[in-house]
């Protein structure tokens, strides 16, 4: 992987973060309406309003406020929440330990389900198995995840009482904390897995018809060996693209799923902050989520280069 390549991707990452911060700031601070008034409501007393304005620095120019906010982000200082009266960084830190494991578990689940299932369907093209997998994934793509989450709760938590229906006991509770994440992770992962299974299947079908798979067969490899040794890795390239895109949907999905399962995660935090009009929290959490997604896509780019030697030399 050439240095130039990495430098370009790194620069792209920084520019994307910068652009995201500008857009968030412009949307939330410069749009018509007084942020302080929005936060306190129209019935607020003038002196409270003035105090909040001063605290938020609304009397200063937009440039100064952006510089302060962005500078704070770089130092890890995300401002102070109006509702909770604690630093936002602390809030985000507490919530991240729920959302991050949740997202990672669902991502792993998605991969564990989608890659073998897609490969299986492709290897048995037009068989009953293939048709069944295509039909089921079609259904999986169509089902909304919050409804699916409720069905999971109904079945596993209420009827069978195997798993908790919601809430999070904290990581100090050990295995019970992990159990609390199982249903939410499944609810998040299955619709994603349905999409990825279909991508994996069609991508593998395409690579199976490539000349180099025929070459592999002409060497004396069986159909299965040619698939495993030559077609599979080539088929992963488009799957990676979709996986990178899916991650942002996964993050968006946590907002809904954390609410359904009452998990104290980032998604729930942002939802509550919007309800409470805690603009400082909303602004910073949105920035954290975006940074998350941009970084994941950066990692996907690097993964591309690791999988595909053709991309390594290119600028």
């Amino acid at each position: 992987m050439s240095l130039l390549w990495l430098a370009r991707r790194g620069l792209g990452l920084c520019l994307a973060l910068l652009a995201a911060s500008v857009i968030i700031f412009v949307l939330m601070d410069l749009l018509p309406g007084d942020p302080a008034e929005i936060m306190l409501g129209t019935s607020a007393r003038p002196d409270t309003l003035a105090a909040l304005r001063a605290e938020m620095g609304l009397d200063r120019s937009a440039w100064v406020r952006y510089a302060e906010w962005a500078g704070g982000l770089l130092r890890g200082d995300f401002g102070k929440s109006q509702t909770y009266a604690v630093p936002v960084a602390e809030l985000v830190g507490e919530r991240l330990v729920v959302t991050l494991p949740l997202a990672l578990i669902s991502l792993c689940l998605t991969l564990i389900i989608a890659l073998p299932l897609g490969a299986w369907a492709a290897a048995r093209r037009n068989s009953t198995t293939d048709t069944a997998i295509v039909a089921i994934t079609q259904l999986g793509v169509a089902i909304p995840n919050f409804w699916f989450a409720m069905m999971l709760v109904l079945l596993f938590a209420i009827s069978w009482r195997w798993l908790p229906s919601g809430g999070f006991p904290g990581w100090d509770a050990g295995p019970r904390a992990a159990l609390a994440l199982i249903l939410p992770a499944i609810a998040l992962a299955l619709p994603q897995a349905a999409i990825l299974t279909r991508v994996m299947r069609s991508s593998l079908l395409e690579t199976l018809s490539e000349d180099y798979v025929r070459t592999a067969r002409a060497k004396g490899l069986t159909r299965g060996e040619a698939l495993r040794r030559h077609a599979f890795r080539n088929a992963l390239i488009p799957v990676l693209t979709i996986l990178g895109l899916q991650f942002s949907f996964l993050i968006a999905g946590t907002v809904v799923i954390e609410n359904v399962f009452s998990l104290p995660g980032l998604g729930r935090l942002i939802f509550q902050a919007i309800n409470q009009r805690d603009l400082v929290v909303v602004r910073s959490v949105v920035m954290v989520l975006i940074a998350f997604i941009i970084t994941v896509n950066f990692v996907v780019d690097i993964a591309y280069a690791l999988v595909d030697p053709r991309l390594r030399g290119r600028g």
Partner: peptide, 26 residues
């Protein structure tokens, strides 16, 4: 099929037209 797999590559070698796509790029 198993017998053919033993023959392919060992007893009969095949060279294709398109060298650009005949090799696994990865």
């Amino acid at each position: 099929e198993a017998t053919l797999c033993h023959l392919r590559g060992a007893e009969i070698g095949l060279v294709f037209q398109e060298p650009m796509t005949a090799l696994n790029p990865l």
